[in-house]
Computed example of a mutant assay.
Amino acid sequence: MTVTVNNDVLTSLQDDGPNEVSERLLASAARLSRNAMTEIDWSLPMDPDKYGCSPEWSSLYGTDYWNEMSEEQRISLTRHEFASIMCIGIWFEMILQEMVVRDQYLGQYHSPEFQFALTEIADECRHSIMFAKASEKMVGRSYRPGRTVGRLGKFFKATAKNEVAYAGILVAEEVLDVFQRGCMRDDRVLPFIRTVNEIHVLEESRHMKFAREEVRESVQGIGRFRRQFSALYVALGAYMIVTNLIQPQAYADAGLDADRAVAEAGANAHFHSMIRSSCAHLMEFLDEVGLLTKPAMRYYRAAHML
């Protein structure tokens, strides 16, 4: 099943502020929300010849290691890589939910902003279940960040607020959005994974619009010190997310030498280029709102986002 993402409502939105935008996003959610639990037949067998993501989005595509692999190994690799990306997505969506709930804890409950924030949380819960089911079906396991990164994530979700929280949310959503758009109409990819991508792209487009409005509102009138601090904190969060998308264990589970795979992925100019392309719009936005400072840019470059 191929679905064309309808962005008419989203592209027509003006930057009217969180409440005005949220009212339109609530209407969009009411019409266009989808449910993977009823839409996908999780019992269907997987085609052994289908990839987990487009080969060009593999972290090893174009490397010597990739050229040595059989087609079966390449398919297994992309399935484990995308399972890792989905699981790291779950990890950050749990962080996201806590930050949004905290931000709206004593909000104006009658307002569209509050109501869309809860709609987003409901979406993220469904997305996390969808990713968990997809990972279970595709590779039979899940991946988590290492202990240190897990602790840093706890610290980030406990301390990030205002523009830091919503810009951090935007980072994770923008990176995954471009990746999934590149894979969701590729016939080489497993059909149920293409549907997972379609659902996530459609619903995250609303979340990204909401996050951008929250960031714009938060940075209005802030001082230089806060702007510099927020820009650096967002960049540190972005570095933590992007550099942990594919866990080394995913390479091992795909039958590869994990140390060699990590080394070749780390030097893969093609994959770095794909990451930069996925972050182009994000970098433009951060620059627009004054959150792309020189110290922050160092971390974006280190993660190949800039």
Rank of each mutant, 00 (worst) to 15 (best):
N197V: 01
F210Q: 13
K209I: 07
E213C: 11
I222A: 11
M208L: 08
E217P: 06
R224G: 00
Q220C: 01
E217G: 02
K209D: 05
R194I: 09
I199Y: 03
E213Y: 02
F210G: 11
T195A: 05
N197G: 10
I222Y: 01
F210W: 12
V219P: 12
Q220N: 03
I222S: 11
R226E: 14
R206M: 15
E217K: 14
V215L: 05
E213W: 04
R194N: 13
R226K: 14
T195Q: 14
R194W: 03
H207I: 08
V201Q: 04
E214G: 00
V215T: 01
N197S: 08
G223S: 06
E204K: 08
A211I: 04
R194H: 03
G221Y: 00
I222W: 03
F225E: 15
E217M: 08
E214I: 04
A211L: 05
E204N: 09
G223M: 06
R206L: 14
E198F: 00
V201D: 10
G223L: 04
L202Y: 00
V201L: 09
A211K: 03
R194Q: 13
L202P: 01
R212W: 00
E213S: 08
V201M: 06
E204R: 10
R216M: 13
S218Y: 02
I199C: 11
R216D: 05
R216K: 15
V215F: 02
S205W: 02
E214Y: 00
R226W: 01
S205P: 12
R194Y: 02
S205Y: 01
E204V: 07
L202G: 00
E198V: 03
S205L: 07
F225Y: 06
F210D: 00
I222M: 14
V219K: 07
G223I: 01
E204P: 08
T195R: 15
E213Q: 15
S218L: 06
E214D: 00
S218F: 03
R226G: 02
G223A: 02
F210R: 09
M208W: 00
V196E: 13
G223D: 15
E217W: 02
K209T: 07
E214H: 07
R224N: 05
K209E: 09
I222K: 13
E217N: 10
H207Y: 04
E213A: 14
I199V: 15
G223E: 06
G223Y: 00
F210I: 12
E198S: 09
R224A: 07
E217V: 06
T195E: 14
E217L: 13
R224H: 02
F225A: 14
N197F: 10
H200E: 13
G221D: 00
S218G: 02
E198G: 04
E217T: 07
E203L: 04
L202R: 14
F210K: 12
S205Q: 08
T195C: 04
S205C: 11
Q220A: 09
E214P: 02
H207F: 05
R212P: 06
V219H: 06
R206E: 15
